[in-house]
Simulated scan of single mutants.
Amino acid sequence: MVRYRRNRIAGATYFFTVTLRDRRSDLLVREIDALRAAWRVAARRIPHVVIAAVVLPDHLHAVIRMTDATSNYPRLWQDIKKGFTRRVVPAGAPSPWQSRYWERTVRDEEELQALVDYVHINPLKHGLVETVAAWPHSSFHRYVARGWLSREWAADRDVAGRWGER
């Protein structure tokens, strides 16, 4: 078995993509309350700050700053996935999640901003909505409420651009 080497730095910020096995599923948005509940429970065990997040039908993206001394994000995702699975899948049925997830250590403020933008633009890029503000499962709404972004953000931008990439 391949042993993945994860870059774990106390206090670091990471970008994550976590997906379902069935990429045609809408389970995550259909069971959004179960996902939120599982995440709340996991957050009590593994301290972190969600800088940006979006939940799409079959996957989610998150920019998270780990605040525990060990940067134990593998345990965070394990707890979220297990908690969600226990809430929505009958006992004995297989997990809906892909066994792995993708993570990337955020190196600087420029990359952080690009990744936050990528998270927020994602429902628009996937053609799920006409405007970013129309997608309900996104930290974008928190950014609007705090005055950091306008509700019209990205309305006139080229969404085929290099969001999230350098």
Score class of each variant (00 low, 15 high):
99 S>I: 05
98 Q>R: 06
70 T>R: 15
126 H>Q: 15
38 A>Y: 01
97 W>D: 01
119 V>G: 01
55 V>K: 01
79 D>P: 08
121 I>N: 02
55 V>M: 08
70 T>I: 08
90 P>Q: 11
124 L>Y: 14
85 T>K: 13
103 E>V: 07
88 V>Q: 05
79 D>I: 04
123 P>R: 03
55 V>H: 05
39 W>V: 08
84 F>M: 06
42 A>K: 01
71 S>R: 05
73 Y>L: 05
51 I>N: 07
48 H>M: 02
46 I>T: 00
126 H>G: 10
56 L>V: 12
126 H>C: 11
126 H>R: 14
64 I>S: 03
53 A>C: 13
124 L>T: 08
92 G>P: 04
94 P>K: 10
94 P>L: 09
101 Y>T: 04
83 G>T: 09
126 H>N: 15
53 A>Y: 14
109 E>A: 06
42 A>V: 05
60 L>P: 05
125 K>G: 14
51 I>Y: 07
57 P>F: 09
56 L>H: 13
117 D>P: 02
73 Y>K: 02
106 V>Y: 04
62 A>C: 13
64 I>Y: 01
58 D>P: 06
41 V>D: 13
94 P>R: 13
42 A>W: 00
111 E>P: 05
100 R>Y: 15
61 H>D: 03
89 V>M: 14
40 R>A: 15
104 R>E: 15
100 R>C: 08
95 S>H: 11
55 V>Y: 05
48 H>E: 02
76 L>Y: 06
66 M>T: 03
88 V>E: 04
120 H>C: 05
114 A>D: 15
101 Y>N: 00
81 K>N: 03
125 K>H: 14
84 F>G: 01
51 I>E: 10
69 A>S: 11
122 N>L: 05
68 D>H: 07
109 E>K: 02
123 P>G: 08
110 E>I: 09
121 I>P: 01
98 Q>P: 14
93 A>M: 12
100 R>S: 13
96 P>S: 14
42 A>N: 06
65 R>G: 03
64 I>N: 03
61 H>W: 02
58 D>G: 10
121 I>W: 00
95 S>A: 10
63 V>M: 09
